[in-house]
Design a protein around this nucleic acid. Structure first.
Lengths: 134, 134
DNA sequence: GGTTGACCTTCCCACGATGGGAAGGTCCAA
DNA sequence: TTGGACCTTCCCATCGTGGGAAGGTCAACC
């Protein structure tokens, strides 16, 4: 099948399929005489795998590792689990960071009248926020 | 003061100060004969404001709006609050998205032995995840 | 007055992942 | 045969930040 169909079937855009090939995440697809890339059913599976891993927030580097574990019948599930746990920790750190922002903003926002007067604790709060450098 | 000191005082890198000027977030700083940018104490305040807003997760576009509200004595606090609330909603959406990923990953990870055998529900789970296209 | 090292200038490139678009060639069904 | 949908590569954009090169300046010390 051509790249468009593989894209359709996998949910990964043709643009991204080419990109993944360029950066070495995918092996170079065989070409027709015309230069068109030719894909098989198993390529679509791989693309779906990538797509799912993206949806779980994995970066392309991590996906590269996941793919090679996926393809390696001799893998240890320990390695996969470690990768997943590391990723979970990363995501949780982001959540914590975002929640800290949300908390601070909520506090500021709660103090703001939100009317047509100019005095605003939000702007003041941003202006006075703690130490600058680290 | 020179850009390095302004950077030091504000916690915004010199690189970023120049960048903010380039994209129009900051007005062009006056120059010495040598071409060096010259900053005042109030510029440092502005930079700190930007820095704090960045720390709260605002994008540079939003910071542009915040800055003009900050400088405008005729602002309505309503507008500031609306901006903040919108941003809070954005952050919360991200948190929800991340939490969904975390939940899915936790489920998969919990099913994985994590030993040296190759069978791994995590990889299988990623491989079989629901519908591809949308 | 020199020298010297820290600082400044601009310019280009990089990341992450994705998209847009242009210019040109190919496929396939009617 | 033709036409429209599809493919190719190449470059540019996003967003915020950093790195580095090449060259000019500042200020302190001898």
């Amino acid at each position: 099948m051509k790249i468009g169909e593989a894209a359709q079937e996998s949910g990964v855009s043709a643009k991204m399929i080419r990109h993944y090939e360029t950066i070495g995440l995918l092996p170079a697809a065989p070409r027709r005489d015309s230069g068109y890339r030719e894909y098989q059913g198993r390529d679509v599976e791989t693309l779906r795998f990538i797509r799912s891993a993206r949806d779980l927030g994995f970066g392309l580097d991590a996906i590269g590792e996941l793919l090679s574990l996926w393809r390696n019948q001799q893998r240890a599930s320990r390695d996969v689990k470690a990768l997943a746990e590391r990723h979970i920790a990363t995501l949780e750190a982001k959540v914590a960071e975002l929640n800290a922002m949300i908390g601070a903003l909520r506090t500021l926002s709660a103090c703001c009248h939100g009317d047509n007067r100019p005095d605003c604790p939000i702007l003041e709060g941003i202006g006075h926020r703690a130490a600058p450098a680290e």
